[in-house]
Simulated scan of single mutants.
Amino acid sequence: MKRTHLPLNGLRVLDAAARYLSFTRAADELAVTPAAVGQQIRTLEDVLGVVLFRRTAKGLELTPEGAAGLDALRRGFLEMEEAVRAMQAQQSSRHLTIAAPRDFTAKWLGARLAAYGRTDPELAFALVASDDGLDFTQANLDLAVCFTGEKGEHEGVPIGPRAFVTVGAPDGSARPIGWPGCPGGESEPIATVADAGLAIDAAIAGLGRATVPVLLAEADLAAGRAVEFGRQEVERGYWLIAPVPQWRQKKVKSLVAALTQ
């Protein structure tokens, strides 16, 4: 018999009926009617090709065929319960694997994960750089951050405004600093760097002005390390995304709530 065809409902009814030797009491435990228990037993007998119970003058009696597999059946149920508990334990674990662009982690996510981590000493994070693509299956990810126009096929919520800000030092050069993804590209930049985070750092140093996502620059602007020279709305923004199974995890829901509050 293939495992995928095991009549699990009928076997559960058999276990209960064998313990009580009563369809009525088994029905009470299983929250069904005695007639439903009888139907499950008859179906199971048809599938297995054996008689499981007989009615005698003393009441319901388990046949030798029915008794033969009970010990193994009950061990199997206990193992399934252990498997469910193991899966639930993993579901409630405090370890989260998060993929995000390097500059986003450095300029925004890292500080917030540190703050969130202080709420629970058992929390642990594995951070994966998503600059070169995203694969939830291979990386075993719980959550990812993407800079995109919409969440796409996954579940997700936007974070931060869909806007870019131009930042620099008060006495720094006014020439642009280029980086892959800057809006419209930069003609004749004074320098080109690998990402928006490095562009912000170069702008703070006075090398030039960087046009970057507002979310990445807000901490440096608030601290006075950078000066704003204008903003512009764009079609893309940062999203927290995950496939439905990951998105439904309690640990992911809690993290998303912390990051979006």
Rank of each mutant, 00 (worst) to 15 (best):
L11D: 00
V13A: 05
A16L: 09
R19F: 12
A26L: 12
V32Q: 10
P34L: 06
G38A: 13
Q39Y: 14
D46G: 13
G49M: 04
A57W: 11
P64Q: 06
G66D: 02
G69M: 11
A72I: 14
R74D: 00
R74P: 01
E79V: 10
M80R: 14
M87C: 13
Q88K: 05
S92I: 08
L96W: 07
I98K: 00
A100G: 04
A100T: 04
D103N: 06
A106V: 07
L109Y: 05
G110T: 02
A114Y: 14
A115Q: 08
A115F: 11
R118Y: 10
R118S: 08
T119N: 03
D120V: 08
L127A: 02
D132G: 01
D132T: 13
D132V: 10
L134C: 08
L143C: 13
F147A: 00
T148C: 11
E150T: 11
E153S: 09
E155L: 14
G160C: 13
P161Q: 03
R162M: 15
F164I: 02
T166N: 00
T166E: 03
T166G: 06
G168I: 04
S173E: 10
A174Q: 07
R175M: 10
I177S: 02
W179V: 04
W179G: 01
G181K: 02
G181N: 02
P189I: 02
G197P: 07
A203T: 05
A205W: 10
R209L: 03
A210M: 06
T211M: 15
L216T: 05
L216A: 07
A223I: 07
E228V: 12
R248A: 05
K250G: 15
S254V: 12
V256K: 05
L259F: 11
